[in-house]
């Protein structure tokens, strides 16, 4: 496991170095500009396309059928599972609220987590919303790095896990280096209450829940795309940029000179 982890870290670090080397004389500045202007830094596109095709195959055989079956479960069961997974994600969101200096959301999320884990029976019921503590946006270490000004670096696709960037991968590494309490109590440390299977089950469930909520959108995208790979890449990067800037409306802040040019013609 340690050897595997070391290899992953090496890949990420070399990937990071590669993207910085590509960024020119003032790497950080140019990477930041690229990130804001919406340019895409797909360093290993050919390999990424291969992995994307592999993931598409996996989706057809495993995830889509699972998600379709999951959608047939009664609504209260799906809501309960979705609530419990959302509640669990607070253990990563809360430290990231703090790291981003958002102490108000950190407080609200902590209260939500305590109330929903106890009164809401392990998060199955969103009792906190009933008490006026509305759900907040999820945060992760990739987003925190983004708010600190770290550029997204190369875009790439991981087998099974899907699209990511160097920055988001480093964020994921932070999870397994102690930043995710759920990982710590299931895998990193021996506890008598949880084991590794609980962690992996929660991750698979999160994937299936997300896929089930987006069955029609994915089908529609597949049907109307001329190049599905680049559509997914665009949507992933837009989504991450939006989350890092905590925007509701992407149009107001992301520069898009193309519309100005079209208007001028």
């Amino acid at each position: 496991m340690n050897k595997y982890l070391r290899i992953i870290i090496l890949i990420f670090v070399s990937n990071m170095l590669f993207s910085i080397a590509n960024a020119g004389s003032d790497g950080s500045l140019e990477m930041k500009t690229k990130s804001n202007s919406g340019e895409i830094n797909d360093c290993f596109e050919k390999v990424n396309r291969g992995i994307f095709a592999f993931n598409q195959g996996l989706d057809k055989v495993i995830f889509k059928p699972l998600a379709t079956g999951y959608r047939k479960l009664p609504q209260p069961v799906r809501s309960g599972a979705s609530n419990a997974l959302g509640n669990l994600s607070n253990v990563v969101t809360i430290p990231n609220n703090v790291l981003q200096g958002d102490f108000k959301d950190a407080g609200v999320n902590t209260l939500r987590f305590v109330i929903n884990t106890t009164l809401g029976i392990g998060g199955l019921f969103d009792v906190a919303s009933y008490y006026g503590l509305e759900k907040r946006e999820k945060e992760d270490y990739g987003q925190t790095l983004g708010t600190w000004g770290v550029g997204e670096g190369c875009y790439f696709v991981l087998p099974v896990l899907g699209p990511t960037t160097v920055r988001d991968s480093l964020g994921s590494v932070a999870n397994i280096m102690g930043g995710d309490t759920w990982y710590n109590v299931t895998i990193a440390n021996d506890t008598q209450y949880f084991n590794e299977a609980d962690y992996y089950l929660s991750k698979v469930m999160s994937g299936v829940d997300f896929r089930a909520k987006n069955l029609e959108s994915f089908d529609s995208l597949e049907r109307t795309s001329l190049d599905l790979y680049s559509s997914v890449r665009s949507l992933y990067l837009q989504d991450r940029r939006k989350k890092i800037q905590n925007l509701d409306e992407i149009t107001e802040t992301l520069s898009d000179d193309d519309w100005e040019e079209v208007d001028a013609q």
């Binding site: 890449r233 665009s234 837009q238 989504d239 992407i250």
Partner: peptide
């Protein structure tokens, strides 16, 4: 809304994700 008598739709943003931008990046990739 340059012509207020005939406003026209130029983009749809689904959960903040621009369809026009996605389309642009797809065409440019091709």
């Amino acid at each position: 809304t340059k012509n207020p008598q005939k406003p026209l739709i130029r983009d749809l943003m689904v959960e903040g994700l621009s369809l026009a931008r996605t389309q642009k990046e797809e065409f440019n990739s091709v």
